[in-house]
């Protein structure tokens, strides 16, 4: 028995990789619907958009690159669906150079799905270089910050941007952030000075960093990781990519918790801990 336990403790790490792979794959192949509770921080973003009158300007800054796609792309799609459903006018951009293609795909796909027209219902401005200076520049003169949109059309010729002078004209700004520049850039150099309301979405790994901002009201809501995206999909009543991934998420978490508890229990049972202390 003791030999078996020792062998178990020295298990090849590749077997653990295989267990995790199975825990991810099986729920994706055979979907199980697990209950998901909507957290107040996600509800607040939803409620804020819900209360905006039709025609309000929402700026969606997709500050991520392909590495953040699994968590932030479903958020972007859910937020765009909501905004277009409410007939809000959406301005899109990214502070990350490698994020322009992804962000453009999200805009094009959701706009096509909801029958929205480029330049009238939404504008995609592309990559805004300069991190903080990009936000400051948008705050001072939006057209100077973006002389042309992503497709090369002069912003002065875009009907939706006719009344936009600066960030002060935005009714809501949401940053979907994979790191820096992201939510903090928009808060520090944007909201503090130009006074718009700011919401955020982030990868799970950076979520603990943004909870203090939520607590102090510096951001009005937060979508954290794939779970945040799944909660938003629940509020919209749509089964999207995030909800599909939540069963797999729960299964992998169960495997990890099981392995941590079992390995710790076996470690102490076999007396290795005592041996090490001596």
């Amino acid at each position: 028995m003791s030999d078996f336990v020792v062998r178990l403790l020295r298990l090849d790490r590749r077997i653990i990789f295989l267990l995790i792979a199975l825990a991810t794959l099986l729920p994706l192949l055979y979907p199980v619907s697990l209950p998901i509770r909507v957290s107040p921080e996600v509800q607040r973003v939803y409620d804020y958009i819900e209360k905006l009158p039709a025609g309000s300007l929402v700026l969606l800054s997709m500050d991520f690159e392909p590495g953040g796609k699994p968590e932030l792309y479903p958020m972007a799609v859910a937020l765009l669906r909501h905004a277009f459903q409410k007939n809000l006018k959406v301005l899109g951009l990214t502070l990350w150079p490698a994020g322009a293609g992804l962000a453009e795909t999200a805009f094009t796909e959701v706009a096509r799905e909801k029958g929205k027209e480029k330049g009238v219902d939404y504008v995609f401005l592309g990559y805004a270089p300069g991190d903080a200076s990009a936000v400051i520049s948008m705050g001072q003169d939006f057209h100077a910050a973006f002389p042309a949109d992503y497709y090369g059309t002069k912003t002065a010729d875009i009907p939706l941007l006719n009344k936009v002078r600066s960030l002060r004209d935005m009714q809501y700004v949401i940053s979907l952030s994979v790191g820096f520049p992201g939510i903090d850039t928009w808060y520090v150099y944007g909201k503090e000075k130009y006074g718009f309301e700011l919401g955020g979405g982030c990868t799970a790994v950076s979520a603990p960093r943004f909870y203090p901002l939520l607590d102090t009201g510096q951001i009005n809501g937060l979508l954290g990781g794939l779970r945040g995206a799944a909660e938003y999909e629940i509020l919209l009543g749509v089964k999207g990519k995030a909800m599909a991934g939540m069963a797999a998420q729960s299964a992998t978490h169960f495997v990890i918790i099981f392995l941590i508890v079992t390995c710790n229990a076996l470690y102490f049972l076999t007396g290795q801990a005592r041996g090490r202390q001596r």
Binding site: I20, A21, L25, L28, P70, T203
Partner: peptide
């Protein structure tokens, strides 16, 4: 407690990346 919460969120993030990749591979 704060390190534990950060680690938990990190695990969640990494698993989300795996799920996203598996989803496309499928």
């Amino acid at each position: 407690v704060s390190f534990g919460a950060a680690f938990g969120y990190t695990v969640m993030a990494r698993m989300s990346l795996l799920i996203g990749r598996f989803d496309e591979l499928m």
